[in-house]
């Protein structure tokens, strides 16, 4: 079942509240990402070109700058990738 952008954003935000609470109040940016592999990469890695048309996923990026104990500014970024059905494909951060 395809979810709306708002529904997907809610899933991402709930996930971040649990996993990276330092980012819980951050409004994420949203990008579309095609789930495909560049052809040159396929060739180099010896992969077969998939027969199915690639689908898209939404990537929610939460970022802020924090201050370390020595005064340095450190970027804190987390990305949550969700498919159209609301499944979290990947969660990664720095």
């Amino acid at each position: 079942m395809t979810l709306t952008s708002e529904q997907l954003k809610k899933i991402a935000t709930e996930h971040i509240k649990k996993e990276s609470p330092e980012l819980k109040d951050v409004e994420p940016s949203i990008q579309e990402e095609e789930r495909s592999i560049p052809q040159k990469v396929e060739r180099k890695l010896g992969l077969e070109h998939p027969k199915k048309t690639p689908t898209n996923a939404k990537v929610f990026t939460f970022k802020k700058t924090v201050t370390a104990e020595d005064g340095a500014k450190i970027p804190i970024v987390s990305k949550v990738t969700i498919d159209e059905n609301g499944n979290i494909i990947k969660s990664t951060g720095n």
Partner: peptide, 20 residues
């Protein structure tokens, strides 16, 4: 660990604390 473009140091993290 964390790093910064500004300083040479690397940082730990616990909660919202980022010590050198």
């Amino acid at each position: 660990v964390h790093g910064s473009e500004e300083t040479p140091n690397w940082y730990g993290q616990e909660g919202s604390r980022y010590p050198v």
